[in-house]
Amino acid sequence: MQIKVMTNILERNDQVAAALQERFKKAGIFVINLLGSPGCGKTSLLEKTIKALKETLSIAVIEGDLFTAKDAERIEQHGVPVVQINTGGGCHLDANMIQGVLDCLDLGELDIIVIENVGNLVCPAEFNIGEDCKVTVLSITEGDDKPLKYPLIFKQASAVILNKVDLLPYTNFDLKAAEKDITAIHPGVTLVPVSCQTGEGLEAWFNWLIKQVQIKKGKESK
């Protein structure tokens, strides 16, 4: 006997993610799922962002790592609320994990939550965790072939940050080729070359972020 099922295997996660999105929408909070390889500069980008914008926007961070609270400790130094999730081996954050820590944050007080996902170019791309958008960070030292090798994480992102551009003279990273590949995978994606080290390009990222928050709060058209 055949039983038709037609059920999305990640349905349970997606249901929790949808409930999270509703909660964030009611609280007027813009939520980013920050993705990228280990060492690409996600935490550094966050530190620069918090330093520049914390007087303008109320920011909180949810950190995801297999082990340690090293990233949360870095964020804590900047005086914003931060929660560390340790997956203990899990390669990505899922919606249940985010739901599990939300009571640690005062949602009524926040404009943005940045969820820094586990460093990984593969698995986090598949999982909705209640975010408004995914932002993928690719660093110059990882190589310009990575977008075509890991297309989904670039397809899913609303913005792609190309970090460590100060190191371009010391690598064979072809910036034009990488930008061409990323825009073929995701036509119209916002591409922001930056250096967290020198500060180059960060203004464009901050302005994009501020605009997204304003759009979410209904203060500006898309």
Binding site: Q2, I3, P187
Partner: peptide, 20 residues
């Protein structure tokens, strides 16, 4: 055009079972 809808290729689903 870059205005593309992904019609298929992102599925992860159980379609049906055969049971006794």
């Amino acid at each position: 055009s870059a205005n593309i809808l992904v019609v298929s290729g992102r599925e992860l689903a159980v379609d049906y079972l055969e049971v006794e």
